[in-house]
Design a protein around this nucleic acid. Structure first.
Lengths: 220, 220
DNA sequence: TTCATAAATGAGTTACGACTCATTTAGTGG
DNA sequence: CCACTAAATGAGTCGTAACTCATTTATGAA
């Protein structure tokens, strides 16, 4: 399954905005690329202007501050990442295709691991902002929370109702899956690639399946 | 169990160095505090001098560049964090006290979760450096690898020999435990505290125990 | 073609941050 | 008390980065 990369999605989003002139679009694209390459703090507005092929004044015409640029860049990324993390399976899909946890986990993580592989730099930009930029955090949580709740929670409830998943709290199950993904991301970022994605996937599926498949004697 | 905080450990380490004058010690301490509060890039050398109560020239007497200060600050932190993550259980302890995985996980994570709770800011400094500062990564991995291998791997092999743990690759088991810890850290950082640590601990123990307790039919 | 409005320009301003160095102060052995 | 060295000082340099603004250039309706 070929996934669109964040950069491409960003390009499309930016191009679709009728308020943005071509130069303004170039500015946003250059900003994303430079933030991804060098980090926000080590990217100057003149860097951005140069990469975008415009004058520095043009950068400031629409965005009053450098921070405003970052917000304009990160917002659509978050808007893309979050839904792509919050898997949306239909009830029908769940009942017909996923008769056990293993196939469900495999289906979910196959996508997500590849998504991580394909978007490391852009994910770093987003993570850097979420982790190290106070203020944007709160807004993000407000924005993200409902989507996660609506989609993922329902899926888990479905599995639980069919007695295919242990009755642990949904938020902790989500946390676990995101933790594994975050750990994978960390490993990819820190170790020198290539990481054996297939091996990781097989392990994730086996481990999570064993962890969450109900056994009569285990409850919290 | 009361754990020493990174900041205190740092203070002691710095005070124990005979090459450092009191003012140089104050500079390092101020640097750690400011990096933790504001991040490295948003801390100026004049900030450091002011906080340490010295002249800016004094800051540059020993450390030729601002980056050298960061290295001097982060190195002992890493040296502290790593052993504290790599649990060192004696073989005797393992065989007498830990007759099942659950008590082992509880013992390990009780410490680690509290460690995270007590050192969030300092951990952010270290993480920021490891994740977002190329170059320091490689050195870190070289430095960290052997310790982890020597300690943790042996523990797992021990459990496996006693048929208390599934025979999955050690590196993936470590990855899983670190992922859970990283996820916990992320949750603490992002959500507005307080997080219910006890609830998380109980869940971690239950989930990991179920995941890693061997069942005849499951192998990778 | 003309006028009006928005977009773009880039030289300039201002502030601040990393780093230097001539000078002063503190410490120490004789 | 002196002489010598190391430690500390802080005013100053130099570069850079965010941001401004008077001016020019494109756009497009009348």
């Amino acid at each position: 399954m070929t996934q669109p990369k964040i950069r491409d999605y960003f390009q499309q989003t930016v191009a679709a905005d009728p308020d943005l002139t071509p130069k303004q679009q170039a500015i946003l694209q250059a900003s994303l690329d430079l933030f991804a390459e060098q980090g926000f703090d080590h990217t100057s507005t003149s860097d951005i202007a140069q990469r975008a092929g415009v004058a520095e004044g043009t950068v400031y015409r629409r965005y009053k501050t450098k921070n405003a640029i970052r917000e304009a860049v990160v917002a659509p990324i978050i808007d893309h990442i979050v839904p792509s993390l919050a898997a949306d399976f239909t009830r029908e899909e769940l009942e017909t295709k996923y008769t056990d946890l293993a196939s469900f986990f495999r289906s979910v993580f196959a996508n997500r691991l590849e998504f991580v592989n394909d978007n490391i730099k852009e994910l770093k930009v987003a993570l850097e902002m979420v982790f190290f930029t106070p203020g944007s955090r709160e807004a993000m949580i407000q924005h993200v929370g409902p989507i996660v709740v609506d989609n993922i929670m329902g899926i888990f409830d479905d599995f639980k109702a069919r007695h295919l998943m242990v009755d642990w709290p949904n938020d902790l199950i989500v946390q676990t899956m995101l933790s594994m993904l975050l750990g994978y991301f960390a490993r990819v970022v820190m170790a020198i690639p290539p990481i054996d994605t297939q091996r990781e996937l097989d392990y994730f599926v086996a481990m999570l399946t064993q962890a969450f498949t109900p056994k009569p004697e285990n409850q919290v």
